[in-house]
Design a protein around this nucleic acid. Structure first.
Ligand SMILES: [Mn+2]
Ligand SMILES: [Mn+2]
Ligand SMILES: [Zn+2]
Ligand SMILES: [Zn+2]
Lengths: 139, 139
DNA sequence: CACCAATTTATAATGACTATAAAATAAAAT
DNA sequence: ATTTTATTTTATAGTCATTATAAATTGGTG
């Protein structure tokens, strides 16, 4: 339960945090802070964008979610904190999970003398939907 | 020769572009636009930061170099346009090339129905120098 | 040399994110 | 249940890398 997750992290249970966590629960769309804010604002009119950032920062630092930096200008958020590959469609700008077998690595690990505690793997290209929609942009 | 590279891309040969390309030639430090600007400014007092950004953008779009987005706040630039792994030291903030065998992939390629034209692989942790310097921070 | 499109430059604007400080509130203490 | 206090929320201002703008300059062609 979401309340227990907050308690385990030593965080106060607030309506804002519950709303943000509920929105992210099982959400595979990798929304940005602004998208989260805009989706919750109608039901929580007092909600501030700063609170969304604060909550996401706290949860990310606690390892309860991960930040996706697949786009230059904007961060996106993923309720799944385990490292996995992501794909950004250059046409529709959507972000998808994209795991690829041999890249699955257990962290932390060592490469040469580097201690690797974390990694990100981002792919860029054209998603299946956009490939179907416009055959001329294939390859 | 650098002049021929610019000609092949249909770009005018300007002192600013030559200076930027010369600075990047063989440079494995992955400098930011501001670092490039600060290093060139003494010898090219008229140089503008906007020109550095313009030149880097043009060259990146032409595939003559690559942008590294391993840090949230700042872009870095690499004269090697071929995708390869990068490592950011969380202590000294330095960026190193870090290729890891099984991740070498030829682009473009397909995963499921996704057409992948490019990818980035970023590692985060502690570099060899910082591990030596401070034994207590070793995992 | 003269021309002109490309480039450079100074400067302002943008926009995601962060800092600040006052107001509100969750939850512990009484 | 009320009081208390540290945490959180909120509105707002600030930051800073990057981009846009438009005027001045210049490389390359004839
Ligand atoms: Mn994901
Ligand atoms: Mn590199
Ligand atoms: Zn798409
Ligand atoms: Zn280091």
């Amino acid at each position: 339960m979401i309340i227990n997750r907050l308690k385990k992290l030593g965080l106060k249970i607030t309506p804002q945090r519950l709303a943000i966590l509920n929105l992210l629960e099982g959400n595979i769309k990798h929304p940005s802070a602004e998208e989260i804010y805009n989706q919750l604002k109608p039901q929580y009119p007092s909600l501030s964008l700063a609170t969304v950032y604060n909550t996401l920062d706290v949860l990310a630092r606690a390892g309860a979610l991960q930040e996706i930096r697949i786009k230059a200008e904007k961060r996106h958020f993923d309720p799944n904190p385990v490292p996995h590959g992501h794909f950004l469609c250059r046409i529709c700008e959507s972000i998808h999970d994209l795991d690829v077998g041999p890249l699955e690595i257990q962290t932390p690990f060592n490469i040469r003398d580097y201690l690797v505690k974390d990694y990100t793997l981002y792919f860029y290209g054209i998603c299946p939907r956009c490939r179907k929609r416009d055959r001329s942009s294939n390859q």
